[in-house]
Design a protein around this nucleic acid. Structure first.
Lengths: 174, 174
DNA sequence: ACCTGAACACCGTTCAAGT
DNA sequence: ACCTGAACACCGTTCAAGT
């Protein structure tokens, strides 16, 4: 099979899903693609760019623009939970998306959508609220994953995500 | 000078302050300490533990328990800004603290203090609110630092931190 | 145009052996 | 008790040379 940018990002994403960021090296990726490490650099500038592309792929299946937005607040809440659910099963998924969002907040459509929905729901300061919601999602997913990976306290602590989200959505919108 | 745990953490912290996380390697640290790389492992279990210790050091100078708490909401706001200001000048400081906070939310006194102050200020769900505020600080500091490092848009975007913080503090506390 | 081979300059961690 | 030397198993990135 020919090496293409799409295939590189595909295989990178599946390594992340199965083994996490620690195993997602350019060399490991090249091995999985049956090419020399240098070959990847013909299709992708560097690892940062690769991770940004993987981040986009991770949230590519979260639906955008659900038009049944007669209740924008409910649509926003549902969308945030969908983003969270897409990230939760991916080891280090939140860290990868955080890298992409920090490099360019507009590069990930599913996160841009949060701003759109906040506006529709009547948020005062859309930019500030979007930052709050995104940081909450990414921070809390990262925390949940680490706690799940740690040996002690297999009893998962009660989920603080939704209570905190409701505080946020209550405050941001009229 | 004898190699001690304190000296290891000291020098690690100063490498971070000057050069950032990319230059804070165990080998570079050993070079700066004039010892073999293996020597560090007599005093510190591994790099994770080192970074957690560095995180604590970064916020060690933020004062705790300012007793003039006749206005707890104002004390909370001031404390959050102090934490932010301590982190802003340290390259990748937010990432290092995020690692420590995620591994053990109680390990960093200055962040624990946020929960204490939120309670005093009358927050409903202290645990959820603390997570929100901490993720907001760390996410926003990381974003600010990356934007400052990037070449384009030297004109720093207007600071969304305080508007967002005020949204948060308004909502969390009665 | 696309890829290999080989190199450059690094990593974190372990552990026998020395003092 | 504390440290060195040397190894193990890796990294990201570049670039002449091949096809």
């Amino acid at each position: 099979m020919a090496l293409t940018r799409v295939r590189v990002v595909d295989v990178a994403t599946s390594i992340l899903r199965e083994f996490g960021l620690g195993d997602l090296s350019m060399r490991r990726l090249a091995r999985e693609l049956d090419v020399a490490p240098g070959a990847i650099y013909w299709h992708i500038a560097n690892k940062q760019v690769l991770l940004a592309a993987v981040a986009e792929r991770l949230l590519a299946d979260v639906p955008l623009g659900e038009q049944g937005a007669d209740d924008p607040a409910a649509a926003l809440r549902a969308h945030v939970l969908a983003v969270r659910d897409a990230l939760l099963p991916v080891p280090d998924g939140a860290d990868v998306v955080a890298i992409a969002y920090t490099l360019d907040p507009d590069s990930v459509p599913a996160l841009r959508e949060i701003g759109v929905l906040l506006k529709e729901a009547g948020a005062q300061d859309v930019a500030a609220s979007t930052d709050l919601v995104v940081h909450h999602i990414l921070g809390s997913v990262a925390a949940t994953q680490v706690r799940a990976a740690s040996p002690e306290e297999a009893v998962s602590s009660p989920d603080r995500f939704e209570p905190a989200l409701d505080i946020l959505l209550g405050l941001s919108c009229g």
